[in-house]
Computed example of a mutant assay.
Amino acid sequence: MGMLTGKIAVVTGASRGIGRGIALRLARDGAFVVVHYGRRRHEAEGVVSEIQQHGGAAVAIGADLSTIDGIHQLYSELDIALRELRGDYRFDILVNNAGIGQILTMEEATVDSFDEVMNMNVKGPFFVTQRALPRLRDGGRIINISSFVTRVASPSVFTYSMSKGAIDVFTRALAEELGNRSITVNAIQPGIINTEMNAGTLQHQDGQQYAAGLSTFNRWGEPEDIADIAAFLASNDSRWVTGQCIDASGGSRL
């Protein structure tokens, strides 16, 4: 029996990268996983297949979380799927992972680029969580994916950094709000992880040296490094931890 047997987890942006890693790990620990995707249906279905091949259970649901209509679509499909597959629309774990990276300085930013990153990285998680609260069981878990750029000044990703700063504040305020329901709320702050979002950095030797050199371990991170922390935060072992932003950058810029 896995630590999460009988639990239902919703992981946003789970078709690739960190989200995929978290979905696979939570399923391995026994959770039934809802693999949310934005546009990459084929990849999301691949994650579901991989989970099923290892004896787990999962379903893929697509929705654009940068719009309120898309968030409404997510929950209308989710309610139907969970009632059909599990007999109840409620769930236990929400992982707010869906987001976009954006390499733009303050000078390069436009109103459109600002709105794009804020809609996806701030408005999305806020309203996904707002809609989740009546569906989330008491004693549940909310895990937000932030970034080490909230600690390490990174002007090359200016608006992105601001968006993740909002997630850190959201995490603490929500933890206080939900304490009376025994729901923990924590954030993970990855450094540079080997995902498609960072492919531009990691495809060149200079970028590889930069990424590895940030960490005291002299390597960049892998999705599994983050997924294992998420597994702890999703489990009963983390019951006394809430409102925390956990640096997961391999000791970058200590």
Rank of each mutant, 00 (worst) to 15 (best):
M3A: 14
V10C: 02
T12H: 05
R16H: 11
G17K: 01
G19E: 11
G21P: 03
L24Y: 06
L24H: 06
R25H: 04
L26Y: 04
R28F: 03
R28H: 13
D29Y: 02
G30L: 04
F32L: 08
F32E: 06
F32C: 03
V33A: 01
Y37H: 15
R39F: 12
V48R: 05
V48F: 10
E50V: 03
E50H: 08
Q52E: 15
Q52H: 13
H54T: 09
V59K: 03
G62V: 09
S66H: 06
D69K: 14
D69E: 15
I71R: 06
H72F: 07
H72G: 02
Y75G: 04
E77C: 10
E77R: 11
E77D: 13
L78A: 01
L78V: 00
I80S: 12
L82F: 02
D88E: 12
Y89P: 13
F91P: 00
I93D: 00
L94R: 03
L94E: 02
V95A: 06
V95L: 11
N96I: 05
N97L: 07
A98Q: 09
G101W: 00
Q102A: 08
M106C: 12
E107H: 08
D112K: 14
D112A: 12
S113W: 04
F114Y: 14
F114K: 02
M118D: 06
N119G: 10
K123N: 08
F126C: 09
T129R: 04
R131D: 13
L133G: 01
R135H: 12
R135C: 03
R135Q: 12
L136W: 06
D138K: 11
R141F: 00
S154Q: 10
S156A: 15
F158L: 08
F158K: 02
Y160D: 10
Y160A: 10
G165P: 07
G165T: 04
D168M: 05
V169L: 13
F170I: 01
E176S: 15
N180S: 14
R181D: 00
I183Y: 02
I183V: 14
I183F: 00
V185K: 08
N186W: 01
P190Y: 00
I192L: 10
T195W: 00
T195G: 04
T195P: 06
E196W: 02
L202W: 03
D206F: 04
G207T: 04
A211R: 01
A212T: 07
F217W: 14
R219Q: 11
R219I: 08
G221W: 01
D225L: 05
I226K: 03
I226M: 05
D228K: 12
A230G: 01
F232M: 08
N236W: 04
D237W: 05
D237Y: 09
Q244A: 15
C245P: 09
S249G: 15
